[in-house]
């Protein structure tokens, strides 16, 4: 056993504070009135307007049309997050399966082509993507929001590496056991990839959850508003002497944190298992 040194604890405590303080500040500030925040700055202590603020954020109708509520935005973000995560896992798993287990010409070339797209962020292809979706008439739809971003080089890469680490004998045993390509995928690879899927789910859920630019461009209908847009729009009211509703923005930000936290907590055990388990 190594002796616990005070210095180690100090570093840990500082690190924890460094990570946690902004969250605490946001949470505490969200319980004060906007005017107080505007005049006194951020708070580290709880205020008295918490319940009212959160209630307002979740249920009050806002926006130009007057029927965008926090709950609606939460739901939209949820659809984005889960749609992204599930869609990306399905797509990248099947792509990686094809790349690893089927011998076809230019497989390596194709893989590297996919891999190269990792270098290109969404912003580079956002105009053509918009054009395509617009021509297909998919603006202002969940399909248009989710499908164009489903192809995932990261996911394909992870699954490819994972499939490559699965011993060949397993495939051979399955072939002798009379399992065709589909059965092998469903009966052997998918169950073996559970931990890998959990890891990708966490990453991709948060990726989808945090999308801002794409929904902003793709949707004009307010019923497709996501939380990220909601937060931004609260802060964009510098008209005349109006003070932005800082408290509401903070409250939304705090709410926006909760689902990713749930996802991480639920999947983290599998996630860690996936990273440490060597017995495949």
């Amino acid at each position: 056993m190594q002796q616990v040194k005070p210095l180690d604890h100090l570093v840990l405590i500082l690190g924890a504070l460094f990570m946690a303080l902004p969250v605490i500040v946001a949470l505490m500030s969200s319980t004060h009135a906007a005017i107080e925040i505007h005049s006194n700055g951020l708070y580290l202590t709880p205020g008295g307007d918490g319940v009212e603020t959160y209630n307002k954020v979740l249920t009050a109708r806002g926006g130009f049309t007057g029927d965008v509520t926090g709950l609606l935005m939460l739901g939209n973000s949820m659809i984005m997050g889960i749609g992204f995560a599930v869609g990306k896992i399905v797509l990248s798993m099947t792509a990686a399966y094809a790349l690893v287990y089927f011998r076809f010409r230019f497989a390596t070339l194709i893989f590297w082509a996919i891999f190269t797209t990792l270098l290109l962020p969404l912003e580079v292809r956002i105009m053509p993507s918009y054009q395509v979706m617009s021509t297909l008439g998919l603006l202002n739809s969940y399909t248009g929001l989710i499908v164009p971003l489903l192809a995932s080089a990261t996911g394909t890469f992870f699954f490819r590496q994972f499939f490559k680490s699965v011993p060949d004998e397993l495939l051979e045993a399955a072939r002798i056991d009379g399992a065709g390509p589909w059965k092998f995928f469903v009966d052997v690879l998918v169950p073996l990839s559970r931990t890998m899927m959990a890891a990708i789910f966490i990453i991709m859920f948060i990726y989808g959850w945090n999308q801002y630019l794409w929904p902003l461009i793709m949707t004009t209908d307010e019923s497709f508003y996501t939380l990220m847009r909601g937060i931004k729009s609260i802060l964009q009211v510098w008209v005349g002497s109006q003070i932005p509703d800082y408290n509401e923005a903070f409250a939304l930000a705090v709410l926006a944190m909760i689902p990713p936290i749930i996802v991480v907590v639920v999947f983290q055990r599998m996630f860690i298992k996936g990273l440490t388990e060597s017995d495949k």
């Binding site: 045993a173 072939r175 052997v188």
Partner: peptide, 20 residues
Amino acid sequence: LDPADRDIAMVFQNYALYPH
């Protein structure tokens, strides 16, 4: 013929059991 249709069974060096 496919391995499955050859009516044989094979035992591998590293067992190749399905871990799950």
